[in-house]
Simulated assay, not measured.
Amino acid sequence: MTNRILIIEDEESIARVLQLELQFEGYEAEMAHTGTDGLLKYREQQWDLILLDVMLPEMSGIDVLKRIRATELQTPVIMLTAKSDVEDKVKGLDLGANDYITKPFEIEELLARIRTALRFSQKINGQEVAQLYGQLSIDEQTREVVYYGNNVQLTPREYDLLLYLLKHPKQVLTREQILEAVWGYDYYGDTNVVDVYIRYVRHKLETASNEPIIHTVRGVGYVLKEHKHET
Rank of each mutant, 00 (worst) to 15 (best):
Y200G: 04
T81M: 10
K41I: 03
Q19M: 13
Y185A: 15
I114H: 07
L56Q: 01
I198W: 01
G126I: 04
K170P: 00
A117D: 03
E9N: 04
L163H: 06
V90W: 10
L40Q: 06
A70C: 07
K225L: 12
I14S: 06
Y42P: 01
R115T: 03
L165D: 05
F24L: 11
E9R: 03
T216N: 10
V223I: 14
R199C: 09
E28L: 09
E108G: 09
K91G: 03
K167Q: 15
A82L: 11
N150K: 14
Y147H: 03
G134C: 09
E108P: 00
E12F: 07
A208T: 09
Q127A: 15
R202V: 12
K89L: 13
Q131W: 10
G38A: 05
V223D: 04
R202A: 08
T155Q: 08
Q141Y: 11
T75L: 00
Q23F: 11
D186A: 14
M31P: 01
S209D: 06
T71A: 14
I124Y: 07
Q177L: 13
L224G: 05
I213F: 06
K228D: 13
M79S: 03
L136G: 04
T142I: 13
K103R: 15
L93N: 02
P104W: 14
T116Q: 04
V145H: 02
L111F: 10
P57V: 01
E140Q: 14
H229Q: 10
